[in-house]
């Protein structure tokens, strides 16, 4: 039998608090252990500086300098048969390393291999756009700009993609609060009604699990409904559930439960 744990107020307690937990790393193996990857790495090393390279979960990870990203991806696409850019984005390392890690996940259907090209940029720096090489980078780079504020030089339409154009802040930064900053909290009110409406509409209610049966402003107890704002004492009369008014409705036949037939044959 499982040990009993008291379950009062479990919703208010965070079940996970270690916010900056560093997960254990999957073991890395040297690139020489795979022939195809070793050849690809040689091709990159012939022209560009490689800071680090290893194989992890059967995929090669290569660290390069950020100014080489367009040429490395061009080399991989045209000569090493990595014809697809399946994913690209950034990782926020601002707190520990003062910058972002950008990754490009490449796929070769001929070789059945995946390569991840990684590079590190400092805060405030921009990257070269690879949109001319891979069309998939068009939206990915816009999303990277939207979420992290990293601009891609040479992109044809460097605007936000998910958030509204007039949004302030970059939501995927680790410093951005999940429930939004003050701009986010009042965004729709400010935009539609203006800032003077803040007092009338009021702040957002963020505890969506809150239920208060004595609050008649926001809650109604089924079967014991009272007008909005009534002080609830607990002696409210029961309202019988009915679909029509007592006297019936003009030109509509009164629904009578006693006369209705319940069909219990599922194959009817």
């Amino acid at each position: 039998m499982r040990a009993y744990k008291p379950k009062d107020n479990v919703q208010a307690k965070a079940y996970y608090t270690d916010r900056f937990y560093v997960s254990p790393q999957v073991p890395k193996s040297p690139v020489e252990s795979d022939e195809i990857f070793a050849k690809d790495l040689e091709a990159i090393k012939a022209n560009f500086t490689v800071l680090d390279a290893y194989i992890q979960v059967e995929q090669m990870v290569v660290y390069i300098n950020p100014q080489d990203n367009f040429k490395v991806l061009k080399l991989l696409r045209d000569e090493c048969e990595y014809t697809q850019l399946s994913e690209m984005s950034a990782i926020d390392w601002l707190a520990t390393r003062g910058g972002f890690e950008i990754f490009y996940q490449m796929l070769s259907m001929n070789k059945r291999k995946r390569i991840r090209i990684k590079m590190f940029i400092n805060k405030g720096e921009s990257v070269n756009s690879v949109e001319k090489l891979f069309r998939s980078a068009d939206w990915s780079e816009r999303e990277m700009f939207d979420m992290f504020g990293i601009e891609a030089n040479g992109h044809p339409f460097m605007k936000r993609i998910l958030m509204p154009y007039d949004w302030q802040g970059f939501p995927l930064l680790k410093t951005y609060p999940l429930q939004g900053d003050e701009f986010a909290a009042w965004y729709e009110v400010d935009k539609i009604y203006g800032k003077e409406a803040r007092d009338i509409i009021g702040p957002e209610l963020r505890d969506s699990a809150k239920v208060d049966r004595y609050d008649s402003e926001r809650f109604a107890r089924l079967g014991y409904e009272v007008p909005k704002g009534t002080v609830i004492t607990g002696n409210e009369p029961k309202n019988e559930e009915n679909y029509q008014e007592e006297g019936g409705v003009f030109m509509i036949k009164k629904f009578d439960k006693k006369d209705s037939v319940v069909v219990d044959d599922p194959q009817r």
Partner: peptide
């Protein structure tokens, strides 16, 4: 109420609008 989307991008109840 915004439901499970207790985040920056969701309106917390359509009655705010």
């Amino acid at each position: 109420t915004g439901g499970m989307f207790n985040t920056y991008a969701t309106v917390q109840g359509v009655d705010r609008i």
